[in-house]
Design a protein around this nucleic acid. Sequence first.
DNA 1: TAGTGGTCTAGACCACTTC
DNA 2: AAGTGGTCTAGACCACTAG
Lengths: 248, 248
Amino acid sequence: MTDHVDNDGAASPKLGFRPLYQQVRDMFVRRLVDGRWTPGQALPSEMELAAEIGVSQGTVRKALDALAAENLVVRRQGRGTFVAEHDEARILFQFFKLAPDDGERAFPESRVIHIARGAATPEEGARLALKRRAQVIRIDRVRLLGGRPAISERVTLPAALFPGLDAREVPNNLYGLYAAGYGVTVANARERLKAVGLPPEQAAHLDVAPGAPALLIDRLAIALDGSPVEWRVSYCLTDGFHYASDLR
Amino acid sequence: MTDHVDNDGAASPKLGFRPLYQQVRDMFVRRLVDGRWTPGQALPSEMELAAEIGVSQGTVRKALDALAAENLVVRRQGRGTFVAEHDEARILFQFFKLAPDDGERAFPESRVIHIARGAATPEEGARLALKRRAQVIRIDRVRLLGGRPAISERVTLPAALFPGLDAREVPNNLYGLYAAGYGVTVANARERLKAVGLPPEQAAHLDVAPGAPALLIDRLAIALDGSPVEWRVSYCLTDGFHYASDLR
DNA sequence: TAGTGGTCTAGACCACTTC
DNA sequence: AAGTGGTCTAGACCACTAG
């Protein structure tokens, strides 16, 4: 029995107190991490889970609501609770913040320039929390917005996590590939934005003069278990497009 | 009696169904909008509110939890529930996304360049949902990050909402002034970011060459009742600083 | 010690989906 | 009609804060 829920080991109830529903949430996250529950799958009903674990339905509900708030599951009244998928629609709204100044959002096409494997630089190792001289996979690609090249980016991955990815056809939706092909679910990401002059190499890819203003997006993607799984640096032209950010 | 909670007027229960706790939430928002509850004030306890309204404590709890999720109230176990304040710490983390590349976040000093009142341009009228030829207040200022001028921005406000603000000492924390001086609470904001070459006027304010890459932030701030109350356009130098965005 | 919000339970009923 | 998640209630107990 790997799943465990417990609080009072007859010890002091004050220290290390963790609510039952959070323990249940953690248990459910473990099932997602180890692939016991996979994207798209329907979870057992609240009543079944409650009976299995030995808590009330209300406690299971709070745990599932927490997962839904983290976009890890999707709940639909009358149908059930499902493990979230990295389909294009979800990516588009959750992880891709560039939108046309007017008009509908659309998923950008991608054109891979180069893909290779090599030893991590010190910076790559630091960002991805890798051991000394670990291998990484680097993907350089150009992405099209509204039919025009607008993003030049490099994606850096720990090679150990994605064996054979460098010898594979790379799809447009990378996070979908990570999930379906390697069981790696991107749970969240931290982005840092700057305005910079476009370096010559990126300028050539985007067919623009070097030094033109570009939005630099430095993103670190974090997996379900909290470990960094992707480092992505994107240079974006923001002519007719913008980065949308809602502050609540 | 202005507060009202009701569902089934013996009509079809299917259409226009709105859960009780959301109706209670709406009632509470009304109390915030009309100043019956003011920033910093302690709300009555859950039990008192439940008895007053005539619903269970659990329903009041769900309503207050919703408000807490929107950052409109702050709940503290053992102490009570309090109306959120626009103090600098809150602004710093909720509405100000520029952070030093390394080091602690700090609230930027401000230096006002110019304040004036005038008729709204068509664009200002459109952004702020104003009537034709309504008056606006415009504040131009420079803000300092790490002691150096880094942001040149124009703040545009509906004059009707902020009488006399143009003849007043303008503090560093504008949202605090809106709340304390005019009873206007900024509930959320939408930002659009672009990378642009710095226009001559802003370049002069920031003591940088025109055309240098700058982060353009176009922000529309929304009040509790959903109406736009501030339009702000900021040109930011991102040398040693970045715009932080967390994607969940 | 009293009062607050936070957790947990149990059960009834409602709205939505599917068969 | 059956099964799912969503709402609402009522009550017990726990953790935290303040006097």
